[in-house]
């Protein structure tokens, strides 16, 4: 679903991403691990065509993102570290707007409310202004947008950082549901525990290179941490 072929991004002399090769199949949850500045966010930005690759290509559903940026965005949903919404609009109004932009202007209010229920937002939250939402609630709205959009791929940029353990756990559950529905997920994260828990594969990045890829079922949480730190050392 998500494919990167020799994807490279250079800023003058600094290589932010070096020849990334990656394929994420439907139903897979791929967690990108790595220090700050390792190239995780760059990868996501490249898939979103927010920045242009220096060389190589990123494709979504087999379509090159630089050639058909609008077409490819029909299939992905993006959840940043904090899902920023229009503060003066209610949750429902926000969802309606984004769903419409995503090409689904036909939802009725009750259908939209259903998405709120599915992501576990409390009753009545949909009618409140987003300005009053907690961070966990915002992230859930992000998932609701992805659901409403019927996204086939999900790009997550440290979506659980700063969430309390319960909210974080609920978020992971939602991710698992999505992947069970056949959504391909690419998630950049620092949270090894969540990566092990909700990921199917993990990739470790360093200085713009993907240095290791492992299945999460290969080892325990403690093993994952050891492998990660080994890579970080030198």
């Amino acid at each position: 679903m998500l494919t990167a072929v020799d994807l490279t991004k250079r800023y003058n002399d600094v290589v932010a991403l070096n020849a990334l090769r990656l394929t994420i199949a439907p139903g897979e949850v791929f967690c990108l691990l790595g220090a700050n500045g390792a190239g995780k966010t760059t990868t996501i930005n490249l898939f979103l065509n927010f920045i242009e690759p220096t060389s190589g290509s990123a494709t979504i559903n087999g379509i090159d993102v630089t050639k058909a940026p609008l077409e490819t965005k029909k299939y992905v949903a993006y959840i940043p570290e904090t899902v920023m919404l229009y503060r003066n609009l209610t949750g429902l109004e926000n969802l309606e707007y984004f769903a419409a932009l995503a090409g689904r202007p036909d939802y009725t209010a009750s259908q939209l409310l259903e998405f709120f229920a599915r992501v576990g937002l409390p009753d009545g939250a949909a009618e409140r202004r987003v300005g009053t939402y907690s961070k966990g609630m915002r992230q859930k709205v992000g998932i609701a947008i992805a659901l409403a959009k019927g996204a086939k791929a999900l790009l997550l940029d440290e979506p659980t950082s700063g969430l309390d353990p319960k909210a974080s756990n609920e978020f992971s559950d939602l991710l698992r549901q999505l992947s069970a529905d056949g959504v391909a997920v690419l998630m950049a994260t620092h949270d090894l525990f969540r990566a092990k828990q909700s990921g199917t594969r993990v990739g470790i990045m360093k200085h713009g290179r993907l240095v290791a890829v492992h299945g999460t079922d290969e080892f325990t949480h403690a093993d994952l941490e050891r492998v990660y730190l080994e890579h970080m050392h030198d």
């Binding site: 979103l48 927010f50 940026p69 609008l70 077409e71 965005k73 029909k74 992905v76 949903a77 993006y78 940043p80 904090t82 899902v83 920023m84 919404l85 229009y86 503060r87 984004f98 932009l101 995503a102 090409g103 992000g142 947008i145 959009k149 790009l155």
Partner: peptide, 14 residues
């Protein structure tokens, strides 16, 4: 600045 632009542009909108 308020962060909504990235979310909007991650939709198929130019």
């Amino acid at each position: 600045e308020q962060g909504t632009l990235a979310l909007v542009l991650s939709q198929p909108v130019g």
